[in-house]
């Protein structure tokens, strides 16, 4: 009976300020979907880092004038190095073949390069790609070594761009979240004001605090749950239309966003949204309905 009363009061309250309720839900949708998008991007960047860093290599380019003894010296050093996972020796011929394959769309460029002009190199995969500096320190100065290049540095630029997009959406989510909070506080105040007579009588006859406050808090939680479900729908639409649709060509590079991660956003957004709005509503009532 009490639960029924509280729920009925909640629905009446939401309906009485229906424009405010809609405004509250819309700001929640926007802020929660931005939050969801940036969380997804964070998980995505993490996954991509893992994926690419496993494939990432350090290239040790060798001088053209390198002696066989120097080369085998470097090779044995690499083979016994605990940091190194495996080593591939790319000869001049292999480098040229790779180059031809890579730039097959630009025959002029291929023709401009002679078959023995490309440097030979060791392609070194590391157990921990972050230990590039140690590799660089050990091998850069050895006789016969031209330069040591870390492919990770190239990837870092892509990750930096993704990171700044993620930060931007977090900032937007923050601002919209603040707007949503203020709207929640405002809606609850209006709801409490429109029921001030009932609240005064309830306090007078000794209704418990939770019983007075529950319908208002539930209004905010209900709006947050609805907002988070719609925000999740926005993320699903975003995945289907944008990531899997228009940007499908890029997913070779960017890795597809998994359904598991998208679905994980529903409980996360619903949880964050409802807890934050419940606390906001409760704090608002603390100031508004004094015992």
């Amino acid at each position: 009976m009490r639960a029924k009363y509280v729920l009925a009061e909640m629905l009446v309250g939401l309906w009485r300020n229906v424009t405010m309720t809609i405004a509250m839900i819309i700001t929640m949708i926007v802020s929660l979907s931005m939050l969801g998008a940036s969380l997804l991007m964070y998980m995505q960047v993490d996954e991509m880092k893992g994926h690419y860093y496993e494939q990432v290599e350090v290239s040790i380019y060798l001088e053209k004038s390198i002696q066989d003894a120097e080369r085998s010296d470097i090779k044995s050093k690499l083979d016994s190095d605990p940091l190194v996972k495996n080593v591939l020796w790319e000869t001049k011929e292999m480098a040229y073949e790779n180059f031809k394959a890579q730039f097959r769309d630009a025959p002029d460029l291929v023709n401009a390069i002679g078959a023995d002009e490309l440097p030979e190199s060791f392609r070194v995969a590391l157990h921990d790609p972050k230990k590039f500096d140690q590799i660089n320190a050990t091998y850069a100065g050895l006789p016969g070594v031209d330069t040591v290049v870390d492919q990770q540095k190239l990837l870092q630029k892509i990750f930096d761009i993704l990171g700044s997009i993620q930060n931007l959406s977090l900032v937007v989510a923050g601002f919209m979240g603040l707007a949503a909070l203020l709207l929640v506080a405002n809606t609850i105040q209006v709801a409490a004001y429109s029921k001030r007579r009932e609240v005064a009588v309830m306090k007078l006859v000794g209704a418990s605090n939770w019983f007075i406050q529950a319908p208002f808090v539930l209004e905010a939680v209900f709006a947050a749950l609805l907002g988070s479900i719609l925000a999740w729908v926005m993320l699903v639409v975003g995945k289907v239309v944008l990531i899997d649709g228009k940007l499908a060509a890029l997913t070779d590079l960017l890795l597809p966003v998994s359904w598991g991660n998208v679905n994980l956003m529903l409980p996360i957004l619903a949880g964050i949204g409802s807890v934050v709005s419940a606390v906001t509503a409760w704090v608002t009532l603390r100031f508004y309905i004094r015992v």
Partner: peptide, 20 residues
Amino acid sequence: WKIPSFRRSIGCVFQDFRLL
């Protein structure tokens, strides 16, 4: 938090009735 249950033992009437 004990006040609500305390108030249940008191009835109140005012000049302005305070009916809904």
